[in-house]
Amino acid sequence: MEQATVKWFNAEKGFGFIERENGDDVFVHFSAIQGDGFKSLDEGQAVTFDVEEGQRGPQAANVQKA
């Protein structure tokens, strides 16, 4: 698992990007966020996640709020 920071997340559209420590951004979809209830992330929030290869490149999976 990697630890990184949420760059931005649009709760209405259900997706955003996580900024990795190496500077690369990773796409995150609300369905990858672990937990119950409304799944959203806040800008600047610390998260841990795995990286999977998606249809359009790397994307976050198993996202957990740190």
Rank of each mutant, 00 (worst) to 15 (best):
M1W: 11
M1Q: 14
E2I: 14
E2G: 10
E2Q: 14
E2S: 11
Q3R: 15
Q3C: 15
Q3N: 11
A4I: 01
A4G: 15
A4D: 01
A4V: 03
A4H: 05
A4M: 04
T5V: 13
T5Q: 09
V6W: 00
K7L: 05
K7E: 01
K7F: 06
W8T: 01
F9K: 00
F9C: 05
F9A: 02
F9L: 01
F9I: 00
N10M: 05
N10I: 05
N10W: 09
N10D: 10
N10S: 12
N10P: 01
A11W: 11
A11Q: 11
E12W: 13
E12G: 10
E12I: 13
E12Y: 13
K13Q: 07
G14N: 02
G14Y: 02
G14M: 02
G14T: 03
G14D: 00
G14R: 01
G14A: 04
F15Q: 00
F15S: 00
F15W: 15
F15I: 07
F15T: 02
G16E: 00
F17P: 01
F17R: 01
F17Y: 06
F17T: 00
F17E: 00
I18Q: 03
I18M: 05
I18E: 00
I18P: 02
I18H: 00
I18F: 05
E19H: 14
E19Y: 14
E19P: 02
E19W: 14
E19N: 11
R20E: 04
R20Y: 05
R20I: 08
R20S: 05
R20V: 09
R20L: 08
E21A: 14
E21R: 12
E21K: 13
E21N: 11
N22I: 10
N22D: 10
N22A: 09
N22E: 09
N22R: 09
N22G: 10
G23F: 06
G23R: 08
G23W: 04
G23H: 08
G23K: 10
G23D: 07
G23A: 09
D24I: 12
D24W: 09
D24Q: 13
D25P: 08
D25C: 14
D25T: 12
D25Y: 12
D25L: 15
V26K: 02
V26T: 04
V26P: 03
V26H: 00
V26G: 02
V26F: 05
F27V: 02
F27H: 00
F27T: 01
F27A: 00
F27M: 00
F27D: 00
V28C: 07
V28K: 02
H29N: 03
H29A: 05
H29G: 02
H29C: 08
H29P: 03
F30A: 05
F30C: 07
S31D: 02
S31H: 06
A32S: 09
A32C: 07
A32V: 07
I33L: 07
I33N: 01
I33K: 00
I33M: 04
I33H: 00
Q34N: 10
Q34L: 13
G35F: 09
G35W: 10
G35D: 08
D36A: 12
D36F: 12
D36Q: 12
D36Y: 12
G37Y: 07
G37P: 06
F38P: 10
K39L: 10
S40Y: 13
S40N: 07
L41G: 03
L41K: 02
L41F: 05
D42F: 15
D42M: 15
D42C: 15
D42E: 14
E43H: 15
E43C: 14
E43P: 15
E43I: 14
G44W: 05
G44S: 05
G44D: 04
Q45Y: 05
Q45M: 11
A46K: 13
A46C: 15
A46H: 14
V47I: 08
V47L: 04
V47D: 01
V47K: 03
V47Y: 04
T48H: 09
T48Q: 08
T48D: 05
T48M: 11
F49A: 02
F49H: 03
F49V: 03
D50V: 15
D50N: 15
D50M: 14
D50G: 09
V51T: 08
V51H: 05
V51Q: 05
V51D: 01
E52T: 12
E52N: 08
E52W: 11
E52F: 13
E52Y: 13
E52R: 11
E52H: 11
E52G: 08
E53R: 10
E53Y: 15
E53N: 12
E53P: 11
G54Y: 06
G54S: 10
G54K: 07
G54P: 03
G54W: 07
G54Q: 05
Q55D: 11
Q55F: 14
Q55W: 14
R56S: 09
R56D: 07
R56Q: 09
R56W: 15
R56N: 11
G57M: 04
G57F: 04
G57C: 06
G57W: 06
G57Y: 04
G57H: 04
P58D: 05
P58Q: 09
P58I: 10
P58F: 11
P58R: 10
P58C: 09
P58Y: 10
P58E: 06
Q59I: 09
Q59N: 05
A60M: 01
A60P: 01
A60T: 00
A61T: 12
A61W: 06
A61K: 13
N62A: 05
N62T: 06
N62V: 04
V63C: 05
V63I: 06
V63P: 01
V63N: 01
Q64T: 10
Q64R: 14
Q64Y: 10
Q64W: 11
K65F: 10
A66E: 09
A66L: 15
A66N: 11
A66D: 09
A66P: 08
